[in-house]
Amino acid sequence: MVDESDVRRIAELADVGIPAEILPTFTAQFNRILEYFDILDTLGDERTGERSLHTVLREDEVCQSLPNEAVVANAAESEDGFVKAPRVM
């Protein structure tokens, strides 16, 4: 079970805003889903199967990069070829 302050803390970690007015409903729904997940508590740790995929590697060969105009084209703001971002201080 989580409470509203837990949900707010998780939202902070995920950088997602949750408006105060929907927080109670959101928390209740969240708990119903977590309750459903509790079924996994009855599962042991033994695994009967495995995924047998392995990564295929790429050769170290240079490919065409994008022109600078294409890099900044989708950015909300840019300046002198840089992408503009919020301040970090």
């Binding site: 840089f82 992408v83 503009k84 971002a85």
Partner: peptide, 14 residues
């Protein structure tokens, strides 16, 4: 960092 030291108003990314 742009806009002068710790008072930067925005940053630029490369």
């Amino acid at each position: 960092h742009c806009g002068g030291g710790s008072r930067a108003r925005y940053s630029l990314v490369d």
